[in-house]
Each structure stands twice: as structure tokens, then as C-alpha cells.
């Protein structure tokens, strides 16, 4: 065989190999910290592992069968849906509005945008504590302020929708900057020429936004909505700190319920089964996001 006929490694082989080697730690990390526990979780979800009832290591679908009849689980899914839909909607709306507003600010006030990022940097437990005191009438400066005018601000955390509202507010406060960042990046990707062209073409500010800016933001909006939605399935710190799932079970979202099952009720297998369900939900949405991302970028 002549040298010309052989498959050649090519000039970039060395470079490529370097990049491949760089991926090894990441792959290992994924394998150790994601795949192994995930496999364990899946295995457990089919088991009867219970810390106090005793475990026979019998495997089957009993946990999943139990889920169908579990009213508390159904309640938790309902709560989760309410928290996620309201929270994500608020975060995307407010995040976009602030992003659009900040984009118009130029000059030295641009530094001010950092202010809007601060809530995102606060740990969730701290956020929850801040809002817990703001929603506790005896501690809240809001209540104190309105008391001066003889207006009684109702206690939020003692009614079902009030508590859900309070958690949504705390969740939105800390997470809207994420939506804002993504939308800001997307806005920067839109050439200012387009808005100018639209202005010359006779479109008002509002019509420019509706006909030009919004359609161009659509992929980013969709992406940020889905990302936030996946993340919102993990509701925990806000609930744990602000309401402990109350009043009654009004704010026991599914992830919190899984925690209750696993750590309070010692029913590890059932907790794992709920976790598996949440994981599958998240995976399904992620898969959809990835597909969508491909379609949008191609």
C-alpha cells in the first residue's frame, strides 16, 4: 500500500487528542457523581428498603403502584405545579422586563445592573430567612409600615394560597436574575440596526418590540422558561425554612415530600421512587430542551 492511500491522522490529531484527554475528568465526575448514585436510586426505587420496618430486599413495582394511590403525593404534585408555573412565569416576565429596561440604560449607570444580580448570589436558605421575616407580621417592616396608617396586612403564611404566593415571591426574587441574564445576553445578540430599521419602517416602540424583538427573543425565552422549570422541580429550601410544608400540607411540594418520606418516615425505597419520578420528569423536559436547542441553533 502506498503512503497516499493510507488514512492519515491529519495535522490536528495532536490538538484533538489533547482536547479528548481534557474531557476525561469531566466524564469520570459524571460517572461517579451522577451515574452511580442514579443507578443506586433506580435500584432502590424498586426495593423495599425501609429503615425501621425491616428490609427483605424484594424488588418489584410496589413503590410505583403505591404512588398511584398516594393522595399526599398527588397533593404534592399539585403544589409543585402551582409553585413552578407561578414562579417560573413571574421570573421570566420580571427577568425579561428588567433586562429590556436595563438595556436602555447606558453610560455610567450601567454599573447599576450588578445590583439586580445580587439576589441571585444570596444562598437560598438566607433568601428564605429574609422572606420568612418579611412575611411574619410580628417581624415584618412591611406590616409595621402599614400599621402606622392603620392598615393591617394579612398574614400570608397561614393560608394555602398565601403561603404559595409567599414562596413564589421568595423564589422569584432570587431567581429572576437568571432569566434576566439570559435575556440580556439574547438582547445583546440582536443587532441594534434591526430596531433602527423598524423605527424607520414606521414601527412604534411597542410594535417594534412585538414584531421584531420578541420573535428574536423567543428561543431564549423558551430556553430560560424550561431551564427554570426543571430547576423549580427541586423546590426545597424555601419550603423547609418558610413553611415546613404548611399550613397543613399546603406547600408540601414533591421534592419536600420525598424528603419527608425518606428522612422522617424512614421509607427510603419509596422516597427513591418519588425521586425517580421527579428525575424522569426533569429528564423528559431536558430532552425536549436539547432537541429544541438543536432546532433553534441549526
Amino acid at each position: 500500500m502506498t503512503a497516499q492511500a493510507q488514512l492519515r491522522k491529519g495535522a490536528t490529531y495532536q490538538l484533538q487528542r489533547g482536547y479528548r484527554l481534557m474531557m476525561v475528568p469531566a466524564l469520570l465526575a459524571v460517572a461517579i457523581f451522577a451515574i452511580v448514585p442514579l443507578a443506586g436510586m433506580f435500584a432502590l426505587s424498586f426495593s423495599d428498603y425501609h429503615l425501621i420496618r425491616g428490609t427483605n430486599w424484594e424488588f418489584g413495582f410496589h413503590n410505583f403502584a403505591k404512588m398511584l394511590a398516594d393522595k399526599r403525593l398527588m397533593n404534592s404534585i399539585y403544589v409543585m405545579a402551582a409553585l413552578s408555573v407561578l414562579g417560573v412565569a413571574a421570573q421570566v416576565l420580571i427577568g425579561s422586563a428588567v433586562a429590556v429596561g436595563l438595556q436602555k440604560i447606558t453610560g455610567r449607570w450601567r454599573v447599576g445592573r450588578i445590583l439586580f444580580l445580587l439576589p441571585y448570589a444570596v444562598p437560598h436558605v438566607a433568601v428564605a430567612l429574609i422572606w420568612l421575616s418579611l412575611f411574619t407580621p410580628t417581624l415584618s417592616p412591611i406590616n409595621a409600615f402599614f400599621d402606622v396608617f392603620g392598615i393591617t396586612v394579612p398574614a400570608m403564611l397561614t393560608s394555602q394560597w398565601g403561603a404559595i404566593f409567599a414562596i413564589v415571591v421568595a423564589d422569584t426574587w432570587t431567581n429572576f436574575p437568571f432569566a434576566m441574564l439570559i435575556i440580556m445576553a439574547a438582547l445583546q445578540g440582536i443587532s441594534p440596526d434591526l430596531e433602527e430599521a423598524a423605527a424607520i419602517d414606521g414601527a412604534s416602540r411597542i410594535r417594534t418590540f412585538i414584531h421584531i424583538t420578541l420573535p428574536l427573543l423567543a428561543p431564549a425565552l423558551l430556553m430560560v422558561t424550561l431551564f427554570r422549570f426543571i430547576d423549580s422541580l427541586k423546590h426545597f429550601p424555601m419550603i423547609f425554612v418558610m413553611t415546613k410544608g404548611g399550613p397543613g400540607r399546603s406547600t408540601q411540594a414533591t421534592n419536600f415530600y420525598a424528603y419527608v418520606q425518606t428522612f422522617q418516615s424512614s421509607n427510603v425505597a419509596y422516597g427513591a421512587a418519588i425521586a425517580v419520578m421527579l428525575f424522569l420528569m426533569a429528564a423528559l423536559i431536558s430532552f425536549y430542551v436539547a432537541k429544541l436547542n438543536q432546532r433553534v441553533t441549526s
Binding site: 443587532s191 440596526d193 434591526l194 433602527e196 430599521a197 423598524a198 423605527a199 424607520i200 419602517d201 414606521g202 414601527a203 412604534s204 421584531i212 420573535p215 428574536l216
Partner: peptide, 20 residues
């Protein structure tokens, strides 16, 4: 007067076509 009301049309260096 607002740009859209001046009765002018403009062609940009970047063309500024609406990509969507």
C-alpha cells in the same frame, strides 16, 4: 419628527434584514 414619520427609507451597511 419620529424616524418613521419622515417619509424616508434607509439601507443599512449590515442590511438590517429581520432574520425571522
Amino acid at each position: 419628527t419620529a424616524p418613521g414619520k419622515r417619509g424616508l427609507a434607509m439601507v443599512f451597511q449590515s442590511y438590517a434584514l429581520y432574520p425571522h
